[in-house]
Nucleic acid binder design. Structure first.
Length: 520
DNA sequence: GCGATCAGAT
DNA sequence: CACATCTGATCGC
């Protein structure tokens, strides 16, 4: 369980045990992974949950949380949130794409408590440090994704990892391929494989549903008998299953993970299993870069439960002293909790009045399942599915109890709810493909972040990856930075990598043709 | 019996 | 070993 209650504030992030956070009133969810939603279920009936639009969809669909209580916020906009009943005291929050999994965000909180950067889970990229909400600010606290906070944790960019995986698949032309993944994340790896190898990727219906929810290009099929590459849950990659699969036909398994770096690889002696370093978290070197750039006064690690490596006596990954020399040593400014906020934090729990049918994730998925589209040969999906869901929160939020956080600000009703944009940051739609001439020629191995992934793939696999570039005209909704000059965020940064989170695919026809299913 | 919570395993 | 899970035990309603 990787959440935090921020002391002396009504803020809780990725923390859902109300008994253990009786003063928390404003809840944020960084992304839809199980270790960040522990305790969040369909019976959540108290406070609003703030998250990205993508995470909102996932939380409602997978966990069955009352949609009235889930508020999807835009990225890159400075939004005002009330910290008491009346809006006397407020803070601002800015969501920044965390480059981790679809919908994942970092939160920047600014208020009477100072400035706090909460990374959630993230993979560092240069975009972080140049972001207008981060650059030039003095942060009092950095809540840091310390998953791989160990000098041993050194691994390639996701681009390089993608290329490595492609090579493994290519060098086993006679084998079927199973890729072990968790429920959410690494979708772009799958998409790259599909496009470069011109093949469908087999997935189970639950994953298919997720991919449709994320509006991924339709390169996925549930007809797993007809494909040669398919996805399974990572815990299905076992010795027993490998043997079973190979008793039918030659099969290799790929585990894209950095889990075993700096540790023992349990698959070291298992035949036909390839553990490929592919990380959705920052390497140690990337963490150093990030800290050096943010220069916080204090760092609080987000991940506490690391197991000890052999010979390790203390959990070194939670020791933030390794960053001491990169931090700001000036004393934190003192503050007191405003009286109205104090009242807010001790007030009675407000419960949502609307009763909801309780549902398990699976049940809920079945209920919300869209009508299956015929599985053709050309992607992306039909126009009907490319229509983005319009902002339901307009209605939902107004119906629900607004008391706790509504800011009845002036003017801007663009998102029609209890959040008001500050500083007149405007959003605009730009289109961008995957081609990224900017990064051409740079070395991309080692500590590089994932931000240049597609250009790298393009460079290495040549014409094939041009397919990626030309096929997916991606609409990036991005904010024009106040500082100017960095408006092409989609192109310069990691959005290409995990940007499916906030991007809409398939707003144009494209010409890539996958092999017919049976030719696998 | 069900949900919340946690320990343990992979 | 342990990314993010999943399973099973326990407790309380």
């Amino acid at each position: 369980m990787n959440g935090a209650v921020i002391p002396n504030t009504p803020i809780a992030v990725d923390f859902w045990r109300l008994r253990h956070c009786s003063h928390s009133r404003v809840f944020f969810l960084s992304h839809m992974h199980a270790d960040h939603t522990a305790g969040l279920t369909s019976s959540w009936n108290t406070y609003k949950i703030y998250c990205s639009e993508v995470t909102r969809k996932l939380v409602i669909a997978k966990l069955g949380v009352n949609s009235d209580l889930v508020v999807g916020l835009p990225l890159d906009e400075c939004l005002i949130i009330n910290l008491d009943e009346t809006g006397q005291e407020t803070m601002t929050v800015t969501l920044v794409d965390a480059n981790h999994c679809p919908g994942s965000v970092m939160f920047i909180f600014e208020g009477y408590f100072g400035k706090i950067l909460y990374t959630g889970d993230c993979r560092f990229c240069d975009r972080f440090t140049s972001h207008s909400a981060i650059q030039g600010k003095l942060f009092d606290i950095l809540y840091l994704d310390n998953t791989y906070c160990d000098p041993k944790c050194f691994f390639p960019s996701r681009t390089q990892a993608t290329v490595n995986i492609m090579k493994i698949i290519r060098s086993h032309p006679e084998c079927k391929v199973v890729i072990g993944l968790h429920n959410l994340g690494k979708e772009m790896l799958l998409h790259s494989i599909a496009v470069v190898l011109k093949t469908w990727i087999g997935v189970d219906p639950v994953r298919k549903e997720t991919l449709e929810l994320l509006e991924m290009p339709n390169v996925f099929t549930c007809e797993i008998d007809k494909v040669w590459i398919r996805v399974v849950k990572s815990n299905e990659i076992t010795k027993k299953n490998i043997q079973h699969w190979n008793s039918n036909e030659p099969t290799i398994a790929i585990l894209p993970t950095c889990l075993y770096i700096g540790a023992t690889n349990p698959y070291a002696n298992v035949e036909n299993v390839f553990v490929v370093p592919y990380s959705d978290h920052s390497s140690f070197e990337e963490l150093r870069k990030f800290v050096q750039s943010v220069k916080p006064r204090k760092i609080i690690p987000i991940v506490h439960k690391h197991r000890l490596s052999p010979g390790e006596t203390i959990n070194s990954r939670v020791n933030m002293n390794v960053f001491q020399s990169l931090m700001d040593s000036s004393p934190s400014s003192q503050y007191t909790v405003p009286r109205s906020v104090e009242c807010f934090m001790t007030a009675e729990i407000q419960r949502a009045t609307k009763q909801r049918v309780k549902a398990t994730g699976k049940l809920c998925m079945r209920k919300t399942a869209k009508i299956k589209k015929p599985c053709g040969v050309v992607f992306p999906p039909d126009p009907e599915t490319t229509e983005t869901e319009t902002d339901k929160s307009d209605v939902d939020v107004n119906e629900s109890d607004r008391k706790s956080t509504v800011f009845k600000g002036t003017g801007d009703k663009e998102h029609g709810q209890d959040i008001t944009k500050r500083n007149a940051v405007t959003s605009s739609s730009i289109k961008c493909g995957f081609a990224d001439s900017e990064s051409r020629g740079k070395s991309d191995v080692g500590s590089d972040s994932g931000e240049k992934d597609y250009s790298m793939v393009q460079r290495i696999t040549g014409n094939e990856m041009n397919a990626v570039a030309s096929s997916s005209s991606i609409k990036c909704v991005t904010a024009v930075s106040e500082s100017g000059g960095k408006s092409n965020m989609g192109i310069e940064s990691g959005e290409k990598d995990h940007g499916i989170a906030q991007q809409t695919f398939g707003d144009e026809q494209n010409s890539i043709v996958l092999r017919p299913l049976n030719l696998a």
